[in-house]
Amino acid sequence: MTTNAKEPRSRLDPEPVPRRDWLGLSSLWAMGGALLFGLAGMLKLPKAAVLASPSKKFRVAIPENLPVGEAFVPPGRAVAVFKDTDGVYAVSTICTHLGCVVKPNAEGFECPCHGSKFAVNGDVKKGPAPRPLPWLKVTNNGGQLTIDEGTTVPNGTKVA
């Protein structure tokens, strides 16, 4: 549609956007977009593609005469290894409440931070812990046991 300059403009005609307003608005939106884009990039910064942490898999040799129901804790690891007639299993000793390391005792585990108590199989008996202690993946490679702290298995999975 072309408008004849001589004809008076109808009030129904759309108001054309003045050039200055258009320039101002477009630069404003461009700035906003660039800021958002930069912010999105910055938000990715704190999460590295590879997280700095030691290997989760480790080999373990449990004592030959480990009594049934007694926990063996490999030095420096937050894992309790048990052995019974069905086989070997490993229970994580990191409390599911707030991450303290629980201590094995005769009845199960006790958390020093907020008083959660767990049964030997990891079930919550008392306190604020929301979930049972997870069981960890154990692989038996011709007598050589490997525990993977990064992989959980359904509670009750034992390896012969």
């Binding site: 420096g76 937050a78 409440h97 020093p112 931070c113 008083g115 604020p128 929301p130």
Partner: peptide, 26 residues
Amino acid sequence: NPSVPENPAKAPWYFLGLQELVSFSA
């Protein structure tokens, strides 16, 4: 020592009220 927690492990005093609440639900 990452494998042996302090027992009891207490937060700074002004957070101990919160720690008390946290001991019911994190």
